[in-house]
Design a protein around this nucleic acid. Structure first.
Lengths: 115, 115
DNA sequence: CGGATATGGATCATTAATGAATCATTATAC
DNA sequence: GTATAATGATTCATTAATGATCCATATCCG
């Protein structure tokens, strides 16, 4: 008989998106090793499992961004080349910019591809 | 009788980690609006649901990093201030750096806190 | 060399994220 | 002002990610 295959589930990923994830994972791995930190150690500090650390460092797109960014922060990989205070300021400014734009984006007829 | 509470499940997040996610979400929202793109439109292009777009823009740490980076790439938020080719080169270089380090990180007695 | 240990990979049960649908709100367009 | 449409929020079933465990490999250290 035919086996019921659960379902592959494949999501389309753009090139730069995957590359960015791959690079981030590599940077985390590199930073961890430079600090002589073990994968298990990083896992403990981040409150995640060692297996997840492996997936993160491998660049698995399916990992939660919270876990990835947390690991990055722990080993000192700069997410935005900025400290906490600078990030706060930037968050505020971005929010203000959003507020300036129309609340509802009515796509006026033609879709702007912005290029 | 007592109701069986499913379980809250709270993960510890560092400040910078959350801030980075928040900022990234904001940037995506801002870029989307600047391009006069609707949330549904972005969802369709990214192959995700509108609800997920909302969570991403809100800065939910539980979103898959693949989905977040994909959305960012679509609306043109630079993940690394670099194009695809530059990313490839950087991935390669980082890999080489990792290769130079000892394969196994034996934490020599005292944990380096690296600060 | 030999022991100890970190890593990589795989499987599986559990838990949580996602997609879909609905509703209310609000603002844009006419 | 009215109609249309985007957004925000919520709920729920489904699907997928996570944690735990185990094994094999390989490398570091004495």
């Amino acid at each position: 008989m035919d086996q019921i295959v659960p379902k592959p589930k494949v999501r389309p990923f753009s090139r730069v998106g995957r590359q960015a994830i791959t690079l981030l994972g590599q940077q985390i791995k590199l930073a961890r090793k430079q600090r002589r930190m073990t994968a298990q150690e990083l896992a403990d500090r981040a409150g995640i499992s060692r297996g997840l650390v492996q997936r993160i460092e491998k660049g698995d797109p399916g990992c939660q961004i919270g876990a990835v960014f947390e690991a990055a922060a722990i080993v000192g990989v700069p997410l935005y080349d900025a400290d906490s205070a600078a990030l706060s300021a930037r968050i505020k400014r971005t929010d203000e910019q959003i507020a300036l734009l129309p609340a509802h984006t009515h796509p006026d007829k033609k879709v702007q591809d912005a290029f």
